[in-house]
Design a protein around this nucleic acid. Structure first.
Lengths: 203, 203
DNA sequence: CCTATTCTGTAACGATCGATACATAATTAT
DNA sequence: ATAATTATGTATCGATCGTTACAGAATAGG
């Protein structure tokens, strides 16, 4: 049974969400246990009992981030009727999400732990894997468009996916520098201008 | 006179260069005094006597980085005969520089200190200012092309500068993920496809 | 009731952080 | 030679890092 013993006095899901925001704003290295416990409203023994370690807490926070913050962006990619609308929607959702002022700007997965180090090998590895998955999702969506005849057979899906993924990563840094929604949309429009040239005049 | 007293037993410029590489690889937060003194081959009192503090050392390292590593990229922007070649050269130089394997990948100014914090306010502010200057340099080059008649009067220089600066920032993260030179060139080609669409068929 | 189990707050652990005090060594000025 | 000045190495500073020992509080099963 898991109902024995003294019951937890805080909401685990809510505490995780607050921890996610701290990591999002300060990165893995920059978030101290003091920062985390203060934001979560608990003491460190409770944190360790519930989540295991700072590293494990971060990994859970990343998972929550992917499920909550990333869903709008990536569902747009899959559900849009054409590849062009998929990419445009993907970038537009990104511009919208990254410029919200009620949360940290930019992407936790892109900015959370860029400097690999001995102590944070797992963290960097996990984030890198997720960034690679995002790249793959973009490439798959473009490959689908080729299979459906929307894009030419010789369309370079991998290169195009690399380009759009890179643009999104750049938007994270841009957002961290305080870029407004319209500034981010300038980048989106630039990227979509590239689409026109890459996909040919018929697309 | 500055020649009195016991002479310094290490080469200040060489030590600064080594410190720059440490900051470049690990970021400001991730670089400890132990990391720095070990790489510089000196003890901490010598570091403080020569550079003042970790923060001051970082600011000097950033300045050295701008002068040494950034010159190729930004001189290309200014010296290319047309705006198209300027942007293409700017991005191509970036792809080349970011994929060198004998130094850390990506840009120190873009990745050195993304998470603003109370303790590193000056650091973030300095990097942000330098990123803004880069954006301005791009915008100015495009404005020059408008003045020279290469680009149409209604060409949106600011938005285009934002787009290309964002692409370059994204390339830093891409490079940190181990992107090869050809992968970075895929992004460059994508961005230049955007140029074709933005500048019109006559460019 | 009692026991077992789990969580909570206090308090502290060893390690490392950035930064220095201090005595000594090495140089110039007089 | 002596004084003045500056750098070096050792050794350490207080603060903070991530983490945990421990005793008491709160629940369930018996």
């Amino acid at each position: 049974m898991s109902e024995r013993g003294r019951p937890r006095s805080f909401d685990r899901a809510s505490a995780l969400r607050r921890a996610m925001v701290v990591f999002w704003a300060k990165g893995y290295e920059g978030s101290s246990l003091s920062d985390l416990t203060a934001a979560m409203g608990i003491n460190s023994p409770s944190l360790y009992a519930a989540f295991g370690s700072k590293e494990a807490l971060f990994l859970e926070a990343i998972d929550l981030y992917t499920r909550s913050e990333g869903s709008d962006i990536w569902s747009t990619l899959e559900e849009a009727p054409t590849a062009r609308l998929a990419i445009e929607g993907f970038l537009t959702q990104t511009a919208k999400a990254y410029s919200q002022t009620d949360r940290p700007q930019g992407c936790l997965i892109a900015l959370g732990a860029l400097h690999q180090d001995s102590s944070q090998g797992l963290i960097c590895q996990d984030l890198r894997r997720r960034r690679a998955e995002n790249h793959t999702a973009l490439e798959r969506r473009l490959q689908r468009a080729v299979a459906e005849g929307e894009l030419a057979e010789n369309f370079d899906c991998k290169s195009a996916a690399t380009f759009f993924a890179t643009v999104q990563h750049g938007m994270s840094i841009q957002a961290r520098d305080g870029a407004t929604h319209s500034a981010l949309m300038a980048t989106v429009n630039g990227a979509m201008a590239a689409w026109t040239a890459m996909a040919g005049p018929h697309a």
